[in-house]
């Protein structure tokens, strides 16, 4: 009896030690999910935070399952910020469990007013989570990130505000750039065909017709009907190029290309687009802004 009590007491001490732990660096421990979210969070949080992103370059967030190490990171985090709207489809359970630990993960997608969001055809009741392809929506999310930081760390509220303002300026510049680039492509050529339905918001914001082979999530399977539907569309509109994505199997697009060829139309693979993740860290495409620039340039060049 006494031995048990002693044991529990020691474990409790050890436990509380790790909770109050090494915040000696003074930085807030933030855990994020996709590389896009990670990038935004870094831009707002600056050097007041220590970010750990669960998913790196080229990782598919629709299929990503949490490992033991990930769960530990989440449990030890002070703040958790994720894309949301069911983008990280397989992490939903983990997040609800983390909620019970008293943490409140921030669902960025949910901070966007409903009228900006697209409803999903496949997953009734859910929204299309690929909001980052409309720069305006990223501006909204950046503001939400700043608010979250200001709430948690009110002392440094001004710091975060300053970072936010600077970033918003960059985003505005990006937006202007994109609109300019898109203008160079005639309206009839604005058809974007990709592996999965990731670019809905892009099409909406910048005047493109967007067709994905698979549905909103890469977990769906491209069926025979989808292949036919999309290849017919490509032939009908004389589309020059189709695009592969960094986090989706190449074979799917290759099969599509063959289907189109059999209809007597030549379609090229216009290049690789970043759809659910950024490029490698340290490179231009490893930042949100760099990625968007690269994507839009590839799209425009491929379709000209």
């Amino acid at each position: 009896m006494k031995l048990n009590f002693l044991l529990y007491f020691i474990l409790f001490l050890l436990g509380s030690c790790s909770l109050t732990d090494e915040n000696d660096s003074g930085k807030i421990r933030v855990v994020t999910t996709t590389s896009i979210v990670t990038d935004i969070v870094k831009n707002i949080g600056g050097d007041k935070i220590e970010v750990s992103g669960l998913m790196g370059a080229g990782i598919d967030p629709h299929l990503y399952k949490a490992s033991e190490g990930d769960v530990m990171k989440l449990a030890n985090a002070e703040m958790i910020i994720y894309g949301g709207l069911h983008l990280e489809g397989k992490l939903v359970d983990v997040f609800s469990k983390i909620e019970r630990l008293g943490k409140h993960p921030v669902d960025l997608g949910a901070t966007i007013p409903e009228h900006f969001l697209h409803r999903s055809k496949d997953f009734g009741g859910n929204y299309d989570p690929h909001v980052w392809f409309n720069v305006e929506l990223i501006k909204i999310e950046s503001k939400s990130v700043a608010e979250a930081f200001q709430k948690y760390d009110s002392i440094n509220a001004d710091y975060y505000q300053a970072n936010l303002d600077a970033y918003l300026v960059k985003l505005d510049d990006l937006q202007a750039e994109i609109i300019e680039m898109v203008q160079t492509l005639p309206k009839e050529s604005r058809h974007l065909v990709t592996a999965h339905d990731a670019f809905g918001y892009f099409g909406d914001a910048y005047g493109f017709k967007v067709i994905g082979l698979q549905g909103l999530s890469t977990a769906t399977e491209a069926g025979v009907k989808d292949m036919r539907r999309v290849s017919d569309y490509i032939v009908k509109h004389h589309i020059k190029s189709i695009f592969i994505e960094s986090s989706v199997p190449v074979k799917t697009i290759e099969a599509l290309q063959m289907a189109v060829r059999s209809r007597g139309h030549q379609v090229n693979i216009g290049g690789m687009l970043y759809s659910d993740a950024l490029g490698n860290e340290g490179e231009e495409e490893g930042t949100y802004i760099g990625m968007m620039r690269y994507n839009v340039k590839s799209i425009i060049d491929g379709l000209k």
Binding site: I59, S246, V248, T252
Partner: peptide, 19 residues
């Protein structure tokens, strides 16, 4: 690993006949 998703390894669990 970045390229894993492109290899479509997950697809081998249930198949993807359309490809």
């Amino acid at each position: 690993q970045p390229d894993a998703a492109q290899a479509g390894l997950d697809k081998y669990l249930f198949g993807q006949a359309a490809t």
